[in-house]
């Protein structure tokens, strides 16, 4: 009898121990390692329109739709935002809470948190939108990853290509559209598959 009790006790201990052990593991590990081609491997820190700092990997698990703009941009940027809104309006229902729209500024000199916030309200962007700025070097690096080309002009404005990227939950670029006024279905169909 004593043996059985000892046995049961041991089993109970093992069970509790392994259980609590599991819990700790879950808390410690955010998930499997990032795929090597994930944008979330970038270690740089950005600031958003609310003045909070953010690393892109904090978006893990979401489905970001990303592009790059600058707030003083008169022509192409409002149009690319319109294209993103078109995507927003066609996101399938079950993906709505996962999709997040990310705009990163080219203009490290002028676009700070306050300016981005003002721009967001001017463009009527809700809290599904994240607007980021950082130093010129990290902006150049991100542009390389997203295949966006740009050049600062002597007057301080930026010439740039217009590329929309959809990232998967692990930060891998799953789809891109280039140009203005593109059919949103190209991207929404990708989002559906994720």
């Amino acid at each position: 009898m004593k043996k059985i009790i000892a046995c049961l006790l041991t089993l109970a201990f093992v069970a509790i121990y392994s259980c609590s052990g599991n819990k700790v593991d879950v808390g410690k590990e955010p998930g499997p390692a990032l795929p090597p081609e994930s944008v979330y491997n970038l270690e740089t820190t950005w600031e958003d329109q609310n003045g909070d700092s953010l690393q892109l990997k904090e978006l893990r698990g979401k489905i970001p739709v990303m592009s790059m703009i600058f707030t003083r941009c008169a022509f192409a940027c409002p149009r690319i935002i319109a294209d993103m809104k078109a995507v927003a309006s066609q996101v399938p229902g079950d993906k709505k809470d996962k999709v997040v729209f990310v705009l990163v500024s080219f203009d490290s000199d002028h676009d700070n948190a306050a300016r981005l916030k003002q721009f967001a309200s001017q463009m009527q962007l809700d809290d599904q939108w994240v607007l980021l700025h950082g130093d010129p070097e990290q902006v150049r690096e991100l542009s390389m990853i997203l295949n966006i080309k740009y050049k600062k002009q002597p007057d301080g404005s930026f010439s740039h290509s217009n590329v929309l990227s959809v990232l998967g939950p692990d930060g891998v670029i799953e789809g891109q559209s280039e140009g203005l006024g593109v059919n949103p279905e190209m991207l929404t169909s990708k989002i559906e598959d994720l």
Partner: peptide, 13 residues
Amino acid sequence: VMLEGDSRSNAEL
């Protein structure tokens, strides 16, 4: 530098 086929429609650059 942007010299792709779409430099007329896309990049102003």
